[in-house]
Write a protein that binds this DNA or RNA. Structure first.
Lengths: 328, 328
DNA sequence: TTGTATGCGTTATCAG
DNA sequence: CTGATAACGCATACAA
C-alpha cells in the first residue's frame, strides 16, 4: 500500500531537528511549544508524512473501526440501516468494516473471531442466529434482538408499531383484520409487532386473525390464505397488518392478481417504511422504523466510554406513513 | 477490544515449550515438525490464543482489507454492487472497509488518505468526482470510469447496452424512439449508453431524439418533455431508452399519470436491471449489468499480485431483461 | 527443522 | 516542555 520507504516519525523528527516524542505529540494534538510545532508541521509537509495506523494500533490496541454484521445489503431496509450507521460512525472519525452473514450462522462466528484479533474496537450486529454466544470481552451492540442485560439492544418500538397499525386500520374504517408474517422459531423484538397488534385489536373490539407463513414457500401459502378467505370475489378482511413491507408487497400483488382491490377492498399496512429506490415514494403504507435514530443509538452506544453502564434496551418510536395501500 | 492480558505468541511458546518463531510458523501454516505442531496447537487451544492483527500488519505492511468507495447504499444498484464485492472479497479472506461519499468530493480525498495510512491494501472506487487524483502508490481500481491506462477500470458494456436497447425496441415494433438521461458534465463509461443507442438507431433507420434532463429538477423537466410530445393524448414516441432504471421508473410514473399507457402506447427500457427488494421481480424492462462479474473483476484485479501488468479496461457483457414495461 | 534476535512505527514513561 | 528509550506482537533473516 505505502511506498516501501514512506517517511516515518523518525524521519520527520530528524528533518525537523526534534525528538521523536515531540513529533508524536504534535500529531496527537498535545501541548507542544509553538516554535516546535511549526517546525514539525513544516517537516511533515515537506516529507509528505502520513501516520501509519499499524504502529498506532499495535501500540494502543485501538483501531477506530467498528464491525457491522448484517445479513446483506440487498434488502433495502438493511441497506438503509448500513447507510445510517456508516454516517454516524464517520461523524465520529470511525471506520466501518462490513460483514454479510447471508443468514449463515457460522459466518457470524468468524466475524466475531475477527473482532477478537484486534481488528475492530467493537461490533454492531443484526443477527438471526438462535444460539449466538457473545464473548464478554468484546463491546457488542445488537439490533432488534435482546440477548442479556450485558449486551445492549437497540430496536424500534415494535409493540407500539403493531398497536399503531391496528388503531390506524380501525380509524380508517376496517372492521375485520388479520396479521401476517413469516413464521420463525426465533423470538426477537420484531416478534412483538404481532403482540402489539393483537393487544390493540382486543382493546378496540376489532375482530382479527393471525397467519404465520411457513418459511421457504410463502408464495403458495399466501395464495392459499387469500383463496381460503375469498367468497364470490369478496375478501373476508378489510384490513391487513403485515410483518414487513417486503411481505406486504408480495401479498398485495397476489391480492390484486386475484381481483381484490387495494386499498378499496382491503387496506394493507406493512412495517419498515421502505421507499422506492431507497429515498423516493413509499412502497406501501407502513409503520416506519426510525432507522437513522437506531443507527445513532447503536454507534453512540458502541463507542461509549463507559460501555458497562449503558442501558440494555433502547427502544425508539415509530410512526405511520401513508403509502397508497390504505385510505389515508 | 481484547482483554488487557490476552495471550501472545510468547505466551504460547512458553506454554508449549517451544520457540516464538515456531509458534509463528505453525500459525502461518509453514513447515513444522509434527510433534511441535501438535504441542503448539494444544497450547493455543489451552490459552485461547488469537493472533493480533496489529502486530502482523505492522510487520508485514498488509491488512487484508480493501476500501470500497461508493456514493451510498441507498441506491439499490450500489447496494447490489457492494454486496457482490463483499462476497468476492470474503471468498479471498479479505475484509471490506466501506466508505460512502454521498457524491461529496472532499470525502473521497479523505478516504484515499486513509488508504495511504496503511489501513487498507487497495481501493475500489465508483466515483463521479471530475478531478480526482489517484496517488500512484496505491492499488486502485475504478468502476465505470476510465482515468488512465495505469488505473484499471471495470465497467459493463455500456455502448453495447445502448445498442441492444435500440435493437430490442425495433424488434418489439417501435417506430419512433427517444433516449433520456440526466445531464452531466462528467464523461464516464455510462455516457456510452447514449452513443450505442444512437449508433444502432442510425444503423436501423429508426428515427430518434435525445433528451438531457437538467440535474436538480428532473421532475418538472420530465413533465415538460412528456407534455411537449403529447398531442390529443397521443405520445410522439412508441419507444424510450432511459439511462437508468431509477429514472425510467420516474418517467413511467409521469407517463401513466398523463394517461400514456406503458407498454401499450410506449415501451420503456431502462439500464441496470434493478429488482424489487433487490432480488424479486424486475422493476422495469432493462439492460442488465453483470453486477456479480463486475465485482469479481474488481476484486481479482485489486488483489492481483502483478498489479502493474493488469488490463486497463475490463468490459463485461450486458443482457436484456423483460420487466413489464415492454411487449416482450 | 528449530531457536534467536531484530525491527516494523507508534505511544507512553521517565529523566532532564 | 522536550528528549531519550522502552515496549506493543509479530514475521523473518540468520544462526545453530
Amino acid at each position: 500500500m505505502k511506498e516501501k520507504n514512506a517517511p516515518t516519525m523518525a524521519d520527520v523528527a530528524r528533518e525537523a531537528g526534534v525528538a521523536l516524542g515531540t513529533v508524536s505529540r504534535v500529531i496527537n494534538g498535545q501541548q507542544v511549544g509553538e516554535a516546535f510545532r511549526v517546525r514539525v508541521e513544516e517537516a511533515i509537509a515537506r516529507l509528505g508524512y502520513q501516520y501509519n495506523s499499524g504502529g498506532r494500533t499495535l501500540r494502543t490496541g485501538k483501531t477506530n473501526t467498528i464491525a457491522v454484521i448484517i445479513p446483506n445489503t440487498i434488502n433495502p431496509y438493511f441497506a438503509l440501516l448500513v447507510h445510517h450507521i456508516n454516517m454516524a460512525l464517520e461523524k465520529r472519525d470511525c471506520k466501518m468494516m462490513l460483514c454479510f452473514t447471508e443468514y449463515n450462522t457460522s459466518r457470524e462466528a468468524e466475524f466475531i473471531q475477527m473482532a477478537r484479533q484486534n481488528l475492530v474496537d467493537g461490533i454492531i450486529a443484526l443477527t438471526y442466529n438462535p444460539d449466538l454466544t457473545i464473548p464478554p470481552d468484546v463491546p457488542f451492540v445488537t439490533i432488534d434482538r435482546f440477548f442479556s442485560s450485558s449486551v445492549p439492544c437497540v430496536a424500534s418500538d415494535n409493540f407500539g408499531g403493531g398497536w399503531l397499525a391496528a388503531h390506524k386500520l380501525k380509524e380508517l374504517g376496517a372492521t375485520r383484520v388479520a396479521f401476517m408474517r413469516v413464521a420463525s422459531t426465533l423470538t426477537n423484538e420484531p416478534s412483538k409487532r404481532k403482540e402489539g397488534f393483537i393487544s390493540a385489536c382486543v382493546e378496540l373490539g376489532l375482530p382479527f386473525e393471525t397467519l404465520m407463513l411457513e418459511d421457504g414457500h410463502p408464495f403458495s401459502e399466501i395464495d392459499d390464505f387469500i383463496r381460503s378467505h375469498l367468497e364470490d370475489g369478496r375478501f373476508d378482511f378489510d384490513g391487513l397488518f403485515i410483518g414487513t413491507d417486503s411481505l406486504a408487497w408480495k401479498v398485495i400483488r397476489h391480492l390484486r392478481e386475484l381481483g381484490v382491490r387495494v386499498p378499496e377492498d382491503v387496506q394493507v399496512i406493512g412495517f419498515d417504511g421502505i421507499r422506492m429506490f431507497g429515498d423516493q415514494e413509499p412502497i406501501v403504507s407502513s409503520i416506519v422504523q426510525p432507522t437513522q435514530e437506531i443507527a445513532e443509538a447503536c454507534v453512540s452506544t458502541i463507542l461509549s466510554k463507559h460501555f458497562s453502564s449503558v442501558p440494555s434496551l433502547i427502544c425508539l418510536p415509530v410512526h405511520y406513513q401513508f403509502g397508497g395501500t390504505t385510505k389515508g
